[in-house]
């Protein structure tokens, strides 16, 4: 047997992104086990990871971690390429776009909580739009709009506060400890 000539050299950053995405997948799976009253409303705990990564490692890493988490999470949950996945991906992509833009806002004025709220609103608005346009056209879901937006407000605030707390407790000054820095956090 000859040794394979195909090599996948993984840089330290690759490993870091993979580890962070894995934490996100863990949170996605964990919150899938929580029974929730209304379909479509969930805490979105994995967004905490996206926010922390955005602040600590930059926009590019946050996009990678978030998209990897969405695809891998769907594979783990068995929803890959189902409508659930499409909803998750569309919400994820648009809220990432909002985060990329919002990350340019002055840091003295806008912190993780504001970004989290914006991302949460973008996420649910996109999903409602996709449901209305593609999944269930004609079914009036707009009566549920206050409920969905209220939930986004609450989860956006909660996730933002958790992310702010994590960023404060473990500032980005220790790149040596960059491997799985979240494992020993408040989670």
């Amino acid at each position: 047997m000859t040794a394979s000539t195909i090599k996948f050299p993984a840089s330290a950053e690759d490993r870091r992104i993979a580890a962070l995405a894995a934490v996100g997948v863990g949170l996605t799976v964990a919150e899938a086990a929580i029974p929730l009253p209304v379909p479509g409303i969930k805490p979105g705990l994995a967004n905490i990871i996206t926010l922390v990564v955005l602040y600590r490692y930059g926009v590019g890493a946050a996009v990678w971690v978030s998209l990897l988490r969405i695809v891998a999470g769907a594979l783990v949950l068995g929803t890959f390429l189902t409508p659930t996945f499409v909803l998750s991906l569309s919400g994820g992509v648009v809220s990432l776009a909002v985060l990329v833009l919002a990350a340019r806002l002055p840091r003295a004025w806008f912190g993780p909580v504001g970004l989290s709220l914006l991302a949460a609103f973008a996420h649910i608005a996109t999903q409602l739009w996709v449901v209305d346009l593609w999944l269930m056209p004609g079914l009036s879901i707009m009566g549920w709009l206050p409920v969905f937006l209220g939930a986004a407000w609450l989860t956006g605030l909660a996730n933002g506060l958790v992310a702010a707390r994590m960023l404060r407790d473990r500032p980005a000054s220790a790149p040596a400890a960059a491997h799985a820095p979240l494992m020993r956090g408040p989670l």
Binding site: W109, G111, V113, G114, G160, R165
Partner: peptide
């Protein structure tokens, strides 16, 4: 050291609410 909720965050929070 920045506060967890900065002025702009309060603005987004209040507007959303």
């Amino acid at each position: 050291d920045l506060k967890p909720l900065r002025p702009g965050d309060w603005g987004i929070l209040c507007l959303g609410g």
